[in-house]
Write a protein that binds this DNA or RNA. Structure first.
Lengths: 340, 340
DNA sequence: CTGAAAGCGCTAACAC
DNA sequence: GTGTTAGCGCTTTCAG
């Protein structure tokens, strides 16, 4: 059957025998009050006609939408999907719709999405881990964001404090520092770090925090190997590490994904965790619950971070940049038992 | 600073000294051709003014949008997030925007999203595992979908063949049947099934397929215990199973999440997998890579399923219902070694 | 409390 | 080729 033209507000008004304005006021909220009798007449007419407001038309007339954009690196990564879940729940409470973009790390994709959101006149955009370091690209992003903000849009970021926007910041340094202290206290003596890509701030902070903590506690410098912030990256880094420095007794991977990759390397190489080697990660992603041995990590309240980011973009804008902080909590598990 | 009014096409036209129509044709595509000279003039004016088309206005004038909705149960569940990733990638290729809704299993949320998408005049909506069985609710959903379709919207589902819409269907029965056959071939003799909620079709299909396969191969009826389709559900079900029938030698959990829960129960109870008990799941979610022992499962091409679903809603609509099928592939791993 | 009418920004006939 | 103009569906002054 041919798509029947959807009923419009005009239709409803006619059906109810009232003016367009009254129908609008009765149906789609307004400070104005409509007499109860008319009101019900309109509502009934609307139901009879199966009326659904046209959000586009409303957006145009009102000059604002209910859409917030969420930009993540990879929605299949549990780190991001948990953040997304938290954000989605908060968005629901605020009656906002979430537009999702999983960039797969491609900078051009990021820019496309920003511009799509400008076109959509989105109300806000939330950047979760825009993993880039290319200055040129970062410049472009800033430019896009500026004009988005300039035309009334709100922006918040999660752990990307390089952009001049409200940001949920994670105390990476402190978390990693605390972890190093704990590990040293457990009796480990020869540590290594599997860091993420050097240009990534998060990665540097975690590495530096760990190194500082370790130095303070043990007095030595951990070996550092860098690779991608992914499971495969962890796998490769660990392989190189075992070749370079087979005598380490504990390894800190800059995120859980890398730690899982490292664990896989250990299995392949016959290195027993935690017998031969203590291993720790960072983030406490949900899938960690099911790895064996259970992995020591620094827990981040991921879902809350999504929530917080959304809260940054609703409510009245503030003059000053906000940077709510979340701390990581060291969670010791089987992968790093006390070394006697 | 006050949000400066964004430049409109009218502004651009004025700046370029051409008519509105020409500006529109030059900027936002059209079959009409614009003389090169004017064209560049318009483009330059647009750049100068920082013009961004207003998607709302375009949608209204054109009568269609570039938005597709994706409805999932829980975006933090790796099953859904992997599907979402596949779908997002495909959407990008089609220049479509993805509106995400993570319902958390709440039926009312599902309906709200459907109606939001109608309001948005979304082009299509994809339902991934709308996990419900309530007839009343299903009726409401159908009604919403019908009017969505009636007004030109497209709908596709993933593994929810109860709705009269194009659906990516999974051969749950066949996959589970094949798994049962393999397990029997490996020498297992006393099987149990941790099924999902009885009302869920997927759950019944997997259970029935396994039972049928097992019966054909071994001749007996597996014990069945049902619970939620989640990690916790698997944990509870396994607990009950161990109490009821401690002598089973292999367990099939209706999805990987339940299998992981079951594995946790085993760890707590001191039941060794696979020594005391073989264990298998279904889906092959990505986090499975890192559990020990590696879990036998039936692999589903999750990202592809997201892709396929999107393909169902782009391109010309067909008269007949389409039901592309995907098969599961049995992947034997450490959790089910041969029983001698 | 209700109605008439002026837009919101853009596209697509329809003329020239 | 290019310009004019009539909508798209709704909100919101501005008058009654």
């Amino acid at each position: 059957m041919a798509p029947t033209r959807a009923a419009t507000l005009t239709d409803v008004a006619a059906e109810a025998g009232v003016s367009l304005a009254t129908a609008s006021r009765a149906l789609n909220g307004s400070d104005r009050v409509v007499r109860e009798e008319l009101r019900t007449r309109v509502v009934e007419a609307a139901v009879r006609l199966g009326y659904t407001a046209n959000a586009q038309a409303q957006a145009m007339a009102r000059g604002s939408t209910d859409v917030v954009g969420l930009l993540v690196n990879d929605i299949a990564d549990p780190y991001f999907s948990t953040i997304a879940a938290g954000l989605a729940a908060a968005a629901e409470e605020q009656q906002l719709l979430v537009m999702l973009c999983s960039t797969g790390g491609r900078p051009e994709r990021e820019l496309e999405f920003l511009s799509a959101l400008r076109r959509q006149r989105g109300r806000a955009i939330i950047l979760a881990g825009s993993r880039t370091s290319d200055r040129r690209h970062l410049g472009e992003v800033s430019r896009q964001l500026e004009s988005f903000i300039g035309s009334g849009g709100r922006v918040a970021a999660i752990t990307q404090p390089r952009l001049p926007v409200d940001t949920v910041v994670v105390d990476n340094r402190g978390g990693a520092h605390a972890l190093a202290t704990e590990l040293a206290g457990l009796g480990y003596r020869r540590a290594a770090v599997l860091a993420g890509p050097e240009p990534l701030l998060v990665s540097r902070e975690r590495r530096d925090g760990f190194v500082a903590g370790w130095k303070a506690a043990v007095g030595t410098d951990p070996v550092c190997v860098a690779d991608d912030f992914s499971r495969d990256g962890g796998h490769r880094a660990m392989t190189r590490l075992l070749d370079q420095a087979p005598d380490v007794d504990c390894v800190f991977a800059a995120n859980d994904l890398m730690a899982m990759g490292a664990m896989a390397t250990c299995r392949e190489r016959g290195v027993r965790v935690p017998k031969d080697l203590g291993l720790a990660g960072f983030d406490d992603i949900v899938s960690l619950r099911d790895v064996t041995p259970a992995l020591t990590t620094v827990r981040l309240p991921l879902a809350d971070m999504g929530r917080m980011a959304l809260e940054l973009v609703v409510g009245p804008p503030e003059d000053t940049l906000r940077r709510p902080k979340v701390k990581g909590e060291v969670v010791l598990r089987e992968s790093t038992p006390a070394r006697r």
